[in-house]
Amino acid sequence: MFRSCLLGLLGGVLATSACGSNTTTSPTVEPASTSEVWSSTLTVGASKFYSFTVPLAGTVSVQMKQLTQNGAATTEQVTLGLGSPRGIDCAVSGSVVAGASDSVLLSGQQTSGVYCIRIWDNSQLSKTTAFSVTINHPKQ
């Protein structure tokens, strides 16, 4: 009887420790990534958004490499946000006011799902502006 008790308890402890090792020691491997380029134009006072699917959890980063007016680069700034499509818009959870740059403007660890990038004029554009936004995210 005493042996059966010990066996039961030992089984429980082993199962518990197995759980623990599963959750604490699994290595973090960043999956291979892909890039989507969104090029369009933004009129004064307007907003637009672009949806994309992240098939695996990982890092999503956003760059805005081009911002031009009448074909020439501009130093004017727009607001870029990362969020989720909701209703007729993109509900932004984080945003940045920025001009064209090769730097990563938005970055974060995201679970798999559908996300969106929203770009809008926060009363800083003087004329219609062409932009190019690059989104890097994990691929399947």
Partner: peptide, 13 residues
């Protein structure tokens, strides 16, 4: 005690 041990095992599993 034996039943308790078994319960712990099943619950953890």
């Amino acid at each position: 005690l034996a039943v308790f041990g078994l319960f712990v095992c099943v619950a953890a599993g």
